[in-house]
Design a binder for these strands. Structure first.
Lengths: 167, 167
DNA sequence: AATAAATAGTTTGATTTGCAAACATTTTAT
DNA sequence: ATAAAATGTTTGCAAATCAAACTATTTATT
C-alpha cells in the first residue's frame, strides 16, 4: 500500500518532470541548439532524421492539429531547419524533411539527452543500472497505458465533484 | 558504462515526461478540475492550500516573471480560485491565497497524482516499491543539481558547434 | 462523366502563456 | 529630503495552440 509516502512520491515524480523540462529549457536559452525552442526541437524530433513525413502524420505524433503544425513548419522552413514540398503522387499531401542544418540540430539534441542520462547512470553500479533501465521501461508503459485509458474513456466519466464555475 | 542502451534509455525517460504531461492534459480536457489549465493548476500548487503568498515568492517558485504571474492571477481571481489583497504592513506587497474553490481544485489535483502513483506502485511488491521510491528521489536530486549547473554556468559555455542561423 | 464525399493542408480569429521594459507605489538608505 | 531599492502592474510583443472556415485534390456514388 505504501500509503503515507504516496503523496510524497507523487510530488517527487512530478518535480522530476518539471526539472527535466527546466534543465532542457535552461540549456536552450544558453544558445545550445542555436535559436530553437523546445517545441521546435520536438517538431524536429517528430520528423526524424531520415525519411520525409507528411503534415498529418507529424501533427499526430506531436499531438497537435495540422493548423498548428503549419505555422510551426513555416517558421522552421524560414529558419532553414526543414524543407517542405508537395508529394508528386498525391498532390494534397505535403512532405517535410530535415535539412542538413535540421539534422545537425537533431543530433545535438539527442547527444544532450544522452549526456543527461549518462550523468544519471554514472554513479550507479552495473546491476543498479540494469534495474533502473527496466524500471523506466515499466513506468513508460504504465503511463502510456494510463494515457490511452483517458483517451478512450472519452465521455464515460463526467466529473462528480466539479461544481459550476465562471459566472 | 551501458553504452548501447544510453540512447534507448534517454528516449524512454523523455517519453515518460511527455506521457505524464499528456495524461494530465487529457484528464484536464475531460473536465476534471473544472476549467483549469495545467499552468493554472501549477499556479494553485505553487500558492499552496495554507498560507497566503506574495507575488514574487510565487513567481520564483514557478520560474516565471511577476509580470506573467500578474496576468495569470488576474484570470484565477476572475475564475474565483484565488483571492488577492495588499499586505497591511508593507503596502508594496500583494498577497494571494486560494479561495475555498481553489483549495478544492488543489485537493482534487493532488488526489489525481496520488491515484496515478498508486496505479504505478500497485503491481510492485513491497521491496520493489521501496526501491522505486528511493530511486525517484535520487533522480530528482540529480536533475535538480543538473539544473543548477546550467543556471550557474550562465555564460561559461559558448556553444562550440552552433553555426550562424537566420540569414 | 458528373456530382458528392472524403482527405490533406492552409488560413483566420481567438486565447493562453510567456518575456522584457517602462511605469507607479512604497519602503529603505544616504 | 533625496536617491536607491523593492514590489507589482501595465504594455507591447511573440510563440503555441485550437476550432472553424476555406482551398485543392482524390475517391466514391449515381
Amino acid at each position: 500500500m505504501l500509503n503515507p509516502s504516496d503523496q510524497e512520491f507523487a510530488k517527487s515524480l512530478l518535480r522530476i518532470f518539471d526539472n527535466v523540462l527546466l534543465t532542457e529549457e535552461k540549456a536552450l536559452s544558453k544558445g545550445y541548439f542555436s535559436n530553437l525552442s523546445i517545441a521546435e526541437l520536438h517538431t524536429l524530433e517528430a520528423i526524424g532524421p531520415y525519411d520525409a513525413r507528411t503534415m498529418s502524420e507529424t501533427a499526430a505524433r506531436l499531438g497537435i492539429t495540422t493548423g498548428t503544425l503549419t505555422v510551426a513548419i513555416d517558421r522552421l522552413v524560414r529558419k532553414a531547419y526543414v524543407e517542405r514540398y508537395r508529394d508528386m503522387k498525391d498532390r494534397r499531401v505535403v512532405r517535410i524533411r530535415l535539412t542538413r542544418q535540421g539534422k545537425l540540430a537533431y543530433r545535438m539534441h539527442a547527444k544532450f539527452h544522452t549526456l543527461l542520462v549518462r550523468r544519471l547512470l554514472d554513479p550507479l553500479d552495473e546491476s543498479e543500472k540494469q534495474r533502473l533501465v527496466s524500471l523506466v521501461k515499466n513506468i513508460d508503459e504504465f503511463i502510456a497505458e494510463q494515457y490511452h485509458k483517458y483517451s478512450e474513456e472519452e465521455n464515460a466519466i463526467t466529473a462528480k465533484d466539479s461544481g459550476g464555475l465562471e459566472s
